[in-house]
Write a protein that binds this DNA or RNA. Sequence first.
DNA 1: GCTTGACTTGGAGTGGACTCCAAGTGATAT
DNA 2: ATATCACTTGGAGTCCACTCCAAGTCAAGC
Lengths: 129, 129
Amino acid sequence: MTITEVSKKYDLSPDTLRYYERIGLIPPVKRTKSGVRDYDEVSCAWIELAKCMRSAGIPIEALIEYCALTQQGDETISARKELLTDERKKLQEKMDDMQKTLERLNYKIDIYEKAEVTGVLSWDKEKDV
Amino acid sequence: MTITEVSKKYDLSPDTLRYYERIGLIPPVKRTKSGVRDYDEVSCAWIELAKCMRSAGIPIEALIEYCALTQQGDETISARKELLTDERKKLQEKMDDMQKTLERLNYKIDIYEKAEVTGVLSWDKEKDV
DNA sequence: GCTTGACTTGGAGTGGACTCCAAGTGATAT
DNA sequence: ATATCACTTGGAGTCCACTCCAAGTCAAGC
């Protein structure tokens, strides 16, 4: 697959795909004789993984390290597991923050909905905004 | 309260607190005769709200608009509700992405844990990484 | 009355993650 | 064979959200 095809398939710009490869977030992609990128299934799987991880906010740095570890063979299995476990913990914490904010938004939207009917904002605490 | 006290209370740097005020993410804070910020309960509530929203990734832009609307009185209640509803939707979508990634991390960590025992990585699909 | 230290301002600098650009190459279409 | 067009590279530019800095002010302590 060409870079344009992969770009469409995963909705990532060709620039982003080249950038990911350049910084080592995915392993080097195979080339045709003339040097044009030719993505195979493995490359596509890496792209898909990178997109998934990035969409959840896993930092580029961690993904670069993960990619580097996978290319060093089976001695890095424990290191990879730890890396992913660390990121999972951070992700879980972020989601907990977001859950709190979501509940707060629900509360505020509820107050605003009532206010649209009654014309009065009735916060539990006077100081809330 | 002084900026240093508020900074400690909410674990945000004085620079960030000044920055938030400067860009209008919170309403202007009262000053002493000599121009020093003196945070009251309302200002603290704004800081706390800003921190909560930012920790969930709600964009600065949206919070600035929300802050501006609250300062324009009750005619902006519907606008405020819509703004919060939009942000809630985006937040929910982000959390859904993160949930998927979390499950994927769980799966991969599980595979790595098995590999630590057996020495073999057993992905469901050969192409996964 | 002078030093200290926390505060003030506006503006510059940083880091993360792209995103764009200029200059060049190579395969296909006319 | 020449034009077109997607591709290549390295490097510069952008955007967001801070974060830092220089220069100055002010109240309190010695």
